[in-house]
């Protein structure tokens, strides 16, 4: 029923994947890397946690609104393009500079906001597919019994 090795390894891998996905998300603002692969890494970590525990416990632990995350990411990506259209720089990366206390100068690219939107879309879509597959797998024997 429950594999001890998998249940011991899964939290360690969750930390690794979350850190690495954050690194990919920040690193890829004007270089290879970016939202898609970072979202893939995050969902791989969550899926491995889900596999290590039961289906009910996974549903209790990761009961997040995945459809909402997907829609919010899509809206964020779209609004980035609309914002560029209003400002007269459609589909061009704008750079904003901020003065953050204790850190110093921070450059914010609009491509980074677009990448955050793509990240939300990928996490939402993959976890939606995964939860729907779980539901179908558990409901099929009941339908056969009737």
């Amino acid at each position: 029923m429950r594999s001890l090795i998998l249940r011991t390894i899964a939290p360690v891998v969750l930390h690794l994947t979350l850190l690495f996905s954050l690194f990919l998300l920040i690193y890829g603002h004007n270089q290879p890397g970016g939202g898609f692969i970072a979202g893939l890494m995050t969902s791989v970590g969550i899926v491995l946690q889900w596999i290590a525990v039961d289906e009910e416990e996974g549903r209790r632990r990761f009961n997040w609104p995945y459809e909402g995350i997907f829609l919010a990411g899509l809206a964020l990506s779209t609004l980035t393009g609309v914002w560029g259209y209003i400002k007269g720089a459609y589909l061009k990366s704008s750079i904003y500079r901020f003065e953050v206390p204790f850190i110093g100068d921070v450059e914010l690219f609009t491509a980074f906001i677009f990448d955050v939107g793509v990240y939300g879309v990928v996490v939402g879509v993959i976890m939606c597919i995964f939860t729907n597959l779980c539901e179908k797998e558990t409901q099929e024997p009941e339908a056969e019994g009737e």
Partner: peptide, 26 residues
């Protein structure tokens, strides 16, 4: 290399669980 290492590890783990239990999520 890092991305492919994590993905291949998870893939092999899931396949091993599928071979042993017949179901990935129980």
């Amino acid at each position: 290399v890092l991305a492919l290492a994590i993905l291949s590890f998870v893939g092999t783990t899931v396949y091993a669980k599928f071979l042993e239990r017949g179901k990935i999520i129980e």
